[in-house]
């Protein structure tokens, strides 16, 4: 098991390194001059030259990459051109706010999704299952930005119960803090909740159809025990994989939702960087998000291994 974790950690490092190459390559090799991309098509040649010199864009690509990587390894994520500050602290601050949003949403998605999925699987064919199946079907298909618009219309513009946009730090009081989170968290969770509950229902149904569940019933175990002791541990395995996928979708959702609600998190920062062509900031933000995603996948893999004796104890003795 220890060896497994070390191996997976090494592969995470490799993935982050490779994605850093990929990010760098896309930013610097795709057709189009970086300086023109930043300054716009009508920039004066002298402005371009100044910027190129400042960013070291005249150097060979490998040297530019090496300089960037070297900085990243020392904790220097490079500058933000537009804000004229180091990108690191900017990203860190935004990341903290995004983390609040994402972790609450993820807790709802994971806990609620699994609970709903198990409920639907154990009530297969009944009214509650059918209603949920239909709801999942529709909710998966509604884009989160449209949920956001509807939410703002109903609860902010219409009923005026919640603030439409923005963020309140904890210092402004718990109520203000929470009220700014309600809509973003709901919008972020709703589609993923449908996705997770749908797939965990399928995983649970498959476990309940298995021979070992039949065996547990033949042993006279109560339905409750069959469900939680025999079926659930096996259904958890595919569910963990699903949660890892949904974490990736969640990151996408964060970008959109933060933009709609003007929530000053990392997603908003990335879109800001794109809108203002702040390529170094974009590069740094992407790298941070990719690393987080890779770590989340690592956590999922380890969780999978912990729950799966086949990995924990190797192959047949």
């Amino acid at each position: 098991m220890g060896g497994y974790v070390v191996r997976r950690l090494l592969s995470v490092a490799l993935v982050v390194f490779a994605t850093s190459l990929l990010i760098f390559a896309i930013v610097h090799i795709l057709p189009g001059n970086v300086a023109y991309a930043i300054l716009g098509e009508y920039a004066t040649p002298s402005a371009v030259a100044t910027l190129q010199q400042r960013l070291g864009l005249d150097d060979p690509l490998w040297l530019q990459y090496w300089r960037w990587l070297h900085g990243v390894l020392r904790g220097d994520l490079g500058p933000s051109l537009v804000m004229d500050r180091p990108a690191g602290p900017l990203i860190l601050e935004a990341l903290g706010r995004s983390a609040i949003l994402a972790s609450i949403a993820f807790a709802i998605v994971a806990g609620g999704g699994i609970a709903l999925g198990v409920h639907a699987a154990t009530h297969q064919g009944r009214i509650s299952d059918r209603v949920m199946t239909l709801a999942q079907f529709v909710f998966i298909a509604v884009p989160d930005f449209f949920w956001a618009i509807l939410g703002v219309m109903a609860f902010a513009a219409g009923l005026d119960w919640l603030p439409a946009t923005g963020y309140a730090p904890w210092g402004d009081g718990a109520l203000a803090w929470a009220s700014h989170l309600v809509l973003p968290v709901t919008v972020l969770s709703i589609g993923l909740l449908a996705h997770v509950s749908r797939l965990s229902r399928a995983a649970m149904l498959e476990a309940l159809r298995s021979r070992y569940v039949l065996m547990a019933r033949a042993k006279g175990m109560s339905e409750r025990r069959v469900l939680w002791r025999h079926a659930a541990p096996n259904a958890m395995l595919p569910t963990i994989t699903i949660l890892a996928i949904d974490f990736g979708l969640l990151i996408g959702g964060v970008v959109v939702v933060e933009t709609v609600f003007a929530y000053p998190g990392l997603g908003r920062l990335l879109v800001f960087a794109i809108e203002h062509r702040d390529l170094p900031l974009l590069q740094a933000g992407m790298l941070v998000l990719t690393t987080i995603y890779a770590l989340a996948n690592l956590a999922a893999d380890i969780g999978y291994a912990v729950l799966n004796p086949r990995i924990r104890y190797g192959a047949a003795a």
């Binding site: 021979r211 096996n234 799966n308």
Partner: peptide, 13 residues
């Protein structure tokens, strides 16, 4: 006791 012992025992326990 059922047919295929490979699937009749719970792999997680």
């Amino acid at each position: 006791v059922f047919q295929d012992p490979a699937s009749a025992l719970n792999p997680a326990l």
